[in-house]
Write a protein that binds this DNA or RNA. Structure first.
Ligand SMILES: [Mn+2]
Ligand SMILES: [Mn+2]
Length: 304
DNA sequence: GACTGTA
DNA sequence: TACAGTCAACGCGTC
DNA sequence: GACGCG
């Protein structure tokens, strides 16, 4: 270990990781070295879902018990091979990091980036998302309730002719991800997603709600579609969460859902074995992209 | 984590 | 050289 | 316009 930290080889580069022995997850023993090794290892599985997308970065330089913050602007000190995309915002524009290789993931780990949150759109068409995400947020830690909501969501999406992919968030809920053709802008997509969420809550008013305010949810699971908006984002697959034990957002096969006991089932310690043993649940997602206007039309017909 | 200003 | 201080997001819905 | 929320 030199004065600048520890050398890591990745993507044909050698990067230095400062403070490699710093424990980032309390006293679990998981260090910044482990975080970097995680992202190097999951890079090939993760990158297809991250490439080309502006990233919001959740950083914890002093570990998860210290102060954390989101960073959207690409730091000036980033190496020139860390790519960026300039995105318009309300006032002016800002340049954000885009991870197009495993080396960038590892460099970010060195910056104490624990969680990556990609946009739902890509750099070549920032206003038109190619993913719609139905985010299932349980009250408390009721995972059986989340599983049931996910099956309800899948059933409705099937009726609407929309493909549905599944992921644990590594926290408390599940994400149901719908790949869509890039035909509509964010406001139009969110309106359709809202229609889907409202229909779910209408079918199961005792268990599901679209109420934003917690005090109006009455113990029901929040079907959150507000993330389908410009400059909003959702946790990336195989990203680590800033929680005890370093849980990892994990794509699932629908057939696995019944056996999964928690959104935190996989961690940096266990995800490697899973990736080796289980076929990629999200393989071919892009090729299954559906027409959102067609989905909206079928949704309107359900109302009759 | 990186940088700046001050002692 | 050492160290204290500073900075590092944002859109939507509701009140 | 501020606040709650994720
Ligand atoms: Mn620090
Ligand atoms: Mn969620």
């Amino acid at each position: 270990m030199g004065a600048r930290g520890e050398s890591v080889r990745v993507g044909g580069r050698r990067l230095d990781i400062g403070n490699p022995d710093k424990e980032l997850f309390g006293s679990s023993g998981i260090t910044k070295r482990d975080l970097a090794a995680h992202y190097r290892s999951v890079g090939p599985a993760m990158l297809p879902h991250v490439k080309g997308r502006p990233l919001a970065l959740h950083r914890f330089p002093d570990g998860i018990d210290g102060e954390g913050f989101f960073q959207k602007r690409r730091a000036d000190h980033a190496p020139d091979w860390v790519e960026g995309v300039t995105v318009p915002r309300e006032k002016g524009s800002t340049t954000m990091v885009v991870a197009n290789g495993t080396a960038t993931l590892v460099w970010l780990a060195g910056q104490a980036v624990i969680t990556l949150h990609p946009w739902l759109s890509r750099a070549d068409d920032l206003n038109r998302p190619d993913r719609v995400i139905i985010d299932l947020d349980p009250p408390g830690d009721d995972f059986p309730g989340v599983r049931r909501a996910a099956r309800d969501t899948r059933r409705l999406l099937e009726e609407l002719g929309a493909p549905a992919f599944l992921m644990t968030t590594g926290s408390r809920g599940l994400h149901v991800v719908v790949p869509v053709r890039r035909r509509l802008v964010f406001d139009e997509c969110r309106e359709i997603a809202h229609g889907i969420a409202d229909r779910l809550a209408q079918r199961h008013p005792d268990r599901l709600t679209t109420e934003v305010r917690k005090d109006k949810r009455g113990g029901r699971l929040f079907v959150d579609v507000l993330r389908n908006s410009y400059a909003q984002h959702a946790v990336a697959p195989y990203s680590v969460r800033p929680l005890a034990g370093a849980p990892v957002a994990t794509p699932l096969h629908w057939e696995e859902l019944d056996e999964v006991a928690s959104a935190r089932q996989w961690t940096v310690r266990g995800i490697g074995r899973r990736i080796e043993e289980v076929a990629d649940p999200w393989r071919g997602m892009g090729r299954r992209a559906c027409s959102l206007p067609a989905v909206a039309k079928r949704l309107r017909h359900l109302d009759r």
